[in-house]
């Protein structure tokens, strides 16, 4: 109970700080729109194939735009030595990690919810055929990306080349979740049910969420405490 309250406090703190400055979310949202625009030059937007690769496109946008939010997660605490105070406070490392991950996940989900309709309009795609399933995949995959991103944000917070190192480390690790999310999203946007062989992707998505959350909770204290 105490753990959840602490994690909640951290999440609320991060969300408030972000909503007051809107630094990361504005950058992330505009970047997402820029990528959506850039894709239109890469192929013919009206082509029928768009639907077939829609899952891949969307998750590339989400992963690139989300990284901007994740990048800021721990580095924002560096000003005025906030991170040292947070680590020294009675809040456990795991609660700090979960709180930050929840805040990041909410911010990235917000970017995704804005991007989906824009994507639908730009590329003439009806994405609302299975809204609840799509929401489930969005939440599960976003959580997967977020725990990895938050963990690696903590891992690289003190690095000289942080902005350069984070993408190199984080994208390969995100691939399990991204791959499953891309497959499922493509299916759901086409309006097909998730059955038979495709269930394996949902299992993978949930499995990786559990594995990476457990690893993050277990190891974050080691990373943060010097």
């Amino acid at each position: 109970m105490r753990f959840l309250r602490q994690a909640g406090t951290i999440a609320v703190k991060d969300l408030k700080a972000e909503l007051r400055t809107k630094e990361a979310i504005n950058a992330s949202l505009s970047f997402a729109l820029v990528i959506l625009l850039l894709f239109s030059f890469a192929f013919d937007p009206t082509a029928e194939q768009t639907r077939e690769i829609s899952g891949g496109l969307l998750w590339l946008v989400f992963a690139f735009a989300g990284a901007l939010i994740l990048n800021r997660s721990f580095s924002r605490e560096q000003a005025n030595d906030c991170l040292d105070i947070l680590v020294a406070s009675p809040v456990s490392g795991a609660a700090l990690f979960i709180g930050k991950a929840v805040a990041n996940a909410i911010l990235i989900l917000a970017v995704e919810v804005v991007c989906l309709p824009v994507f639908g309009v730009f590329y003439n795609i009806t994405w609302t055929k299975r809204p609840w399933w799509l929401l489930l995949v969005l939440v599960l995959a976003t959580w997967g990306l977020t725990v990895i991103g938050t963990m690696f944000s903590a891992l690289t917070v003190n690095l000289r080349l942080r902005e350069l190192m984070l993408p190199v480390l984080v994208y390969p690790m995100m691939i399990p979740s991204l791959m499953a999310a891309m497959q499922l999203t493509t299916l759901l946007i086409a309006g097909e049910p998730v059955t038979g062989e495709d269930i394996v992707w949902l299992r993978l998505l949930i499995g990786f969420d559990i594995i990476f959350t457990a690893l993050g909770i277990g190891l974050v204290e080691t990373v943060l405490v010097n």
């Binding site: 990895i148 963990m151 891992l155 690289t156 003190n158 690095l159 000289r160 080349l161 190192m165 190199v168 480390l169 390969p172 690790m173 399990p176 990786f208 594995i211 990476f212 690893l215 190891l219 080691t222 990373v223 010097n226």
Partner: peptide, 27 residues
């Protein structure tokens, strides 16, 4: 291997790369 080159302090390098190594084993 790149992360190791980016950290100067030996203890910090050992600690952070050990955490990454455990994550990496999933792949």
């Amino acid at each position: 291997l790149m992360l190791r080159r980016a950290i100067d302090d030996p203890t910090e390098r050992a600690k952070n790369s050990a955490v990454l190594c455990i994550f990496a084993f999933v792949s």
